[in-house]
């Protein structure tokens, strides 16, 4: 009797082992049956990713610096941020991390783009129906909290090692903030403004694109910003399953205890993060210029 209370009555070790084995076998079976189909499904994505990475690496560095400067200026309209961004890239180049940085830039850009393309519609869907919100929120919770190594296992089993599984891992981790903030932004739109749109006979579509999305844009942009940050923080883990970039030297530094190498590449990731963050934040702020107060 006492034993029953001290030992949790678990299912037997053998049953458990068999259950795990069954699950593994089933998944392996699934992987054998559909792995190839899935891989070819993601093939266009892989081709795009490779093309973009090659493009970035083949472009002469002065042009990249120019583009970085131009994007920083267009996004922030601030000389400080523009000069800072260009200077950071120059330092990265001087310390011979240019190629890895371009590879990281490629995967982060593609991942962010995919997050926006997939995440914003999901966020809109969530905002339009409470049931959808109740359904999707726990999924997002799981995606944000489950240790990334756990979902790396099935992803690698299905797709092997390479860029696409790496990209998927980044997506899973980075997409929740943009979905959440799109949903939040739309739900926070002033109901009186929506009522006015209704009173003038706006169709649901006119309301969505004319009122809700524009007014949610600052929040959506905060989501894009968060998504970029989270994608960057996945760089090292993604390099474990074969994504090239700044994560690879960091990984090498960990296993060989190369302090300087790890630090330099780590700081390069930080520099990218700060640049992206400042540019996207100041762009987001400029979107809200109309919120200026003060009467004449």
């Amino acid at each position: 009797m006492w034993e029953f209370l001290t030992e949790f009555p678990s299912i037997g070790r053998r049953d458990l082992a068999e259950m795990k084995k069954a699950i593994d076998e089933a998944f392996k079976g699934f992987s054998r049956a559909y792995g190839e189909a899935l891989e070819s499904f993601f093939d266009p994505l892989l081709k795009f990713l490779v093309w973009f990475e090659k493009l970035l690496q083949a472009t002469p560095w002065p042009i990249i610096l120019l583009i970085v400067g131009a994007l920083a200026w267009l996004g922030s309209r601030s000389w400080k941020i523009t000069v800072g961004a260009v200077a950071a890239f120059v330092v990265i180049g001087i310390f011979d991390m240019w190629e890895d940085t371009m590879a990281t830039l490629a995967i982060i850009s593609v991942a962010t783009l995919l997050c926006i393309v997939i995440g914003i519609p999901i966020g809109i869907l969530m905002a339009r129906s409470d049931r959808m919100q109740a359904l999707i929120t726990p999924v997002l919770d799981v995606m944000q909290t489950i240790p990334s190594f756990v979902y790396l296992i099935p992803v690698v089993m299905l797709l092997g090692i390479g860029k696409v599984p790496g990209l998927l891992a980044v997506l899973i981790y980075a997409i929740p903030p943009i979905v959440r903030l799109t949903n939040l932004g739309i739900r926070l739109v002033d109901p009186e403004v929506l009522e006015a749109a209704d009173a003038f006979g706006a169709s649901p579509r006119q309301k969505l694109f004319g009122v809700q999305v524009p007014l949610a844009l600052p929040n959506i942009f905060a989501g894009v910003n968060q998504t970029i940050m989270m994608a960057l923080s996945m760089v090292v883990i993604a390099s474990m399953i074969g994504v090239k970039g700044l994560g690879v030297p960091v990984l090498r530094a960990i296993s060989n205890q190369y302090l300087a190498l790890g630090l330099m590449n780590g700081l390069a990731i930080v520099a990218l993060a700060i640049i992206f963050d400042r540019i996207s934040q100041s762009y987001g702020k400029r979107l809200q210029a109309y919120r200026g107060q003060g009467n004449d």
């Binding site: 403004v193 009522e195 006015a196 009122v211 007014l215 844009l217």
Partner: peptide, 10 residues
């Protein structure tokens, strides 16, 4: 026409 104006701020 609304009490709190309900203009589109953007």
């Amino acid at each position: 026409v609304f009490q709190k104006f309900a203009l589109l701020p953007h």
